[in-house]
């Protein structure tokens, strides 16, 4: 049974990740800011790159000074949160997703320029695409659970306000005071979660966790609680199957999980189509 013990930590980490990303995923889908996690991860990576350059200029010994790198990564995320909040404005007629996309492209290419690597592919976050959820350690899980509990709790307490901000993206007048402030807080907390989650799960897995379960739940429900439950269920089952398959067949786990999520989406679309067909027949009778 050593295999099961070995899989225990990845499983706990995945469930924690799914729990928080399914919730944020509904916000992401509703706001139509699909690629924000990739953009934020790249902006954080640019922060790390800048800290490397600063260190080089100030002539410090190139040690593994992890703290200053994380600090700058977070600072850049806060900057991005600020940018997205300001540019979400009726006067700016371009969709926020376009702003996110441009920020992503600029972050990637300026990292290329800063680090002066002509080829460039090696500074792109592709290195952290898959992540290493199989090799997650318990200290990492503890750190992640602290982040999840803090941001999750914060979002739970102020859930109505965050929901209203997201609703206002559809032009609904919600009568919320200080919408800009709550929008900023949303992006800031989201940024923190993304940086921590991507460190463990890799960008692609987190991306899949964010959008696929919440897309599936959008097919069946409108209420947030129901959607979170459906998403958590689908995400949990796909992760279990994916981890099991990757362990048994020795394939990378993140693609396996993603493909199961994709399969789940297909099943959900099929179910919905059947459901529609039946209700159609009932109506015509």
């Amino acid at each position: 049974m050593t295999g099961l013990e070995f899989m225990f930590a990845p499983l706990v980490a995945s469930l924690l990740l799914i729990f928080i990303t399914v919730y944020f995923g509904i916000h992401v889908i509703e706001r139509e800011i699909i690629f924000i996690d990739i953009a934020l991860a790249q902006i954080a990576a640019l922060g790390s790159a800048v800290s490397l350059v600063i260190k080089n200029i100030s002539g410090e010994a190139a040690g593994h000074d992890h703290d200053s790198r994380t600090l700058l990564a977070y600072l850049f995320c806060v900057g991005a949160a600020f940018l997205f909040t300001i540019l979400k404005n009726k006067k700016i007629r371009i969709p926020l997703e376009a702003v996110i996309g441009i920020a992503y492209a600029v972050a990637t290419t300026s990292a290329v320029i800063i680090l002066d690597k002509g080829a460039g592919s090696d500074v792109h976050i592709h290195d952290m695409l898959t992540g290493s959820i199989l090799w997650v350690t318990w200290p990492q899980i503890i750190r992640l659970s602290v982040v999840v509990v803090l941001t999750g709790g914060f979002h739970y307490i102020f859930r109505e306000r965050f929901r209203k901000v997201t609703l206002s993206y559809h032009g609904v007048d919600t009568g919320l005071k200080n919408p800009k402030l709550w929008d900023f807080i949303f992006y800031m907390t989201f940024g923190i979660v993304i940086v921590e989650a991507v460190n463990i799960g890799g960008i692609l897995t987190i991306f899949a966790f964010l959008i696929i379960p919440s897309s599936i739940s959008a097919l069946f429900a409108k209420r947030w609680t129901t959607r979170i439950l459906i998403g958590f269920l689908v995400g949990g089952i796909s992760t279990l199957l994916g981890l099991y398959l990757s362990w048994n067949m020795d394939i990378p786990c993140s693609p396996a999980i993603i493909l199961f999520l994709g399969a789940g989406l297909l099943v959900a679309v099929g179910l919905r189509a059947i459901n529609k067909l039946f209700s159609h027949q009932r109506q015509s009778r």
Partner: peptide, 10 residues
């Protein structure tokens, strides 16, 4: 995008 990238990695 996600599924294509996942398959490509496999």
């Amino acid at each position: 995008y996600c599924l294509a990238l996942g398959t490509a990695m496999l």
